[in-house]
Amino acid sequence: FDIYVVTADYLPLGAEQDAITLREGQYVEVLDAAHPLRWLVRTKPTKSSPSRQGWVSPAYLDRRL
């Protein structure tokens, strides 16, 4: 999967189903980028939180090589 970094805090609107909150600087794996406005991502697990999966706007993501 492609690795992206979150460029700004992402707080989903209440109406968005299956969306997750992301923090600036967080790394995520993009699982599904087929839709231009919503990408399915999975967060990297940390010592304090397990990995999470949900939909985010790709405008908040920047690809890492």
Results as ranks from 00 to 15, higher is better:
residue 60 Y to P: 01
residue 60 Y to D: 03
residue 36 P to Q: 06
residue 31 L to K: 02
residue 22 L to A: 01
residue 5 V to E: 05
residue 51 S to M: 09
residue 53 Q to Y: 11
residue 63 R to C: 10
residue 36 P to M: 05
residue 54 G to D: 02
residue 41 V to E: 01
residue 24 E to I: 14
residue 6 V to G: 00
residue 19 A to I: 06
residue 64 R to L: 15
residue 37 L to N: 13
residue 13 L to Q: 13
residue 58 P to C: 06
residue 20 I to G: 03
residue 26 Q to R: 03
residue 32 D to Q: 06
residue 2 D to P: 15
residue 36 P to A: 08
residue 51 S to I: 09
residue 42 R to F: 02
residue 8 A to R: 14
residue 42 R to T: 03
residue 30 V to M: 02
residue 23 R to Y: 15
residue 40 L to Q: 03
residue 35 H to I: 04
residue 26 Q to W: 11
residue 6 V to D: 00
residue 45 P to A: 14
residue 29 E to Y: 14
residue 48 S to W: 11
residue 21 T to P: 14
residue 17 Q to S: 13
residue 51 S to D: 03
residue 1 F to W: 11
residue 36 P to E: 10
residue 33 A to L: 05
residue 9 D to R: 05
residue 61 L to Q: 00
residue 4 Y to N: 01
residue 52 R to F: 10
residue 41 V to Y: 01
residue 11 L to Y: 15
residue 31 L to S: 01
residue 42 R to K: 08
residue 37 L to P: 05
residue 29 E to G: 02
residue 23 R to V: 11
residue 47 K to E: 14
residue 36 P to C: 06
residue 6 V to Y: 01
residue 29 E to H: 07
residue 1 F to D: 07
residue 57 S to M: 04
residue 41 V to S: 00
residue 19 A to F: 12
residue 7 T to P: 01
residue 9 D to H: 07
residue 38 R to E: 04
residue 13 L to V: 12
residue 14 G to V: 11
residue 39 W to T: 00
residue 21 T to M: 13
residue 61 L to N: 01
residue 34 A to E: 10
residue 50 P to F: 05
residue 65 L to W: 14
residue 47 K to T: 12
residue 47 K to Y: 10
residue 46 T to I: 05
residue 41 V to K: 00
residue 54 G to V: 10
residue 2 D to Y: 14
residue 49 S to L: 12
residue 55 W to M: 05
residue 9 D to W: 03
residue 19 A to Y: 12
residue 43 T to W: 07
residue 62 D to N: 10
residue 35 H to W: 06
residue 40 L to T: 00
residue 51 S to R: 06
residue 6 V to A: 07
residue 34 A to F: 09
residue 59 A to I: 12
residue 4 Y to K: 01
residue 12 P to S: 07
residue 35 H to E: 08
residue 56 V to Y: 01
residue 63 R to M: 11
residue 59 A to M: 12
residue 23 R to I: 10
residue 16 E to F: 08
residue 63 R to V: 11
residue 56 V to R: 00
residue 6 V to I: 05
residue 37 L to H: 13
residue 55 W to C: 05
residue 29 E to S: 05
residue 18 D to V: 04
residue 56 V to K: 00
residue 48 S to A: 10
residue 18 D to T: 06
residue 56 V to W: 01
residue 20 I to W: 06
residue 17 Q to F: 12
residue 53 Q to M: 13
residue 40 L to C: 05
residue 65 L to I: 14
residue 8 A to G: 07
residue 18 D to N: 10
residue 48 S to P: 04
residue 7 T to S: 07
residue 17 Q to C: 12
residue 32 D to R: 04
residue 4 Y to F: 09
residue 52 R to T: 12
residue 29 E to R: 06
residue 24 E to Y: 11
residue 17 Q to A: 13
residue 63 R to Q: 11
residue 28 V to K: 00
residue 65 L to D: 14
residue 45 P to I: 05
residue 17 Q to M: 12
residue 24 E to K: 15
residue 42 R to G: 02
residue 21 T to L: 11
residue 51 S to E: 07
residue 27 Y to F: 12
residue 5 V to H: 04
residue 50 P to K: 07
residue 7 T to R: 10
residue 41 V to M: 00
residue 9 D to F: 04
residue 64 R to W: 15
residue 34 A to C: 13
residue 4 Y to W: 13
residue 39 W to C: 05
residue 15 A to E: 14
residue 57 S to L: 04
residue 62 D to G: 13
residue 61 L to W: 01
residue 2 D to E: 12
residue 49 S to K: 09
residue 59 A to R: 09
residue 44 K to I: 15
residue 27 Y to R: 07
residue 23 R to N: 08
residue 39 W to S: 00
residue 40 L to R: 03
residue 16 E to M: 09
residue 27 Y to N: 04
residue 15 A to M: 12
residue 17 Q to T: 14
residue 63 R to P: 11
residue 5 V to L: 09
residue 60 Y to W: 05
residue 14 G to I: 12
residue 1 F to H: 12
residue 64 R to M: 14
residue 33 A to F: 09
residue 3 I to C: 14
residue 16 E to A: 09
residue 20 I to M: 08
residue 5 V to Q: 07
residue 46 T to E: 10
residue 39 W to E: 01
residue 65 L to P: 14
residue 35 H to G: 11
residue 14 G to A: 15
residue 28 V to S: 00
residue 47 K to D: 15
residue 58 P to H: 03
residue 3 I to Q: 06
residue 23 R to W: 13
residue 38 R to N: 05
residue 36 P to N: 07
residue 44 K to W: 15
residue 19 A to V: 07
residue 48 S to R: 09
residue 60 Y to K: 03
residue 24 E to W: 08
residue 62 D to H: 11
residue 32 D to N: 11
residue 43 T to D: 02
residue 4 Y to V: 03
residue 57 S to I: 05
residue 11 L to D: 12
residue 25 G to F: 03
residue 32 D to H: 06
residue 17 Q to I: 13
residue 52 R to H: 09
residue 37 L to M: 10
residue 33 A to C: 15
residue 32 D to E: 06
residue 1 F to A: 09
residue 62 D to Y: 08
residue 11 L to P: 15
residue 54 G to L: 10
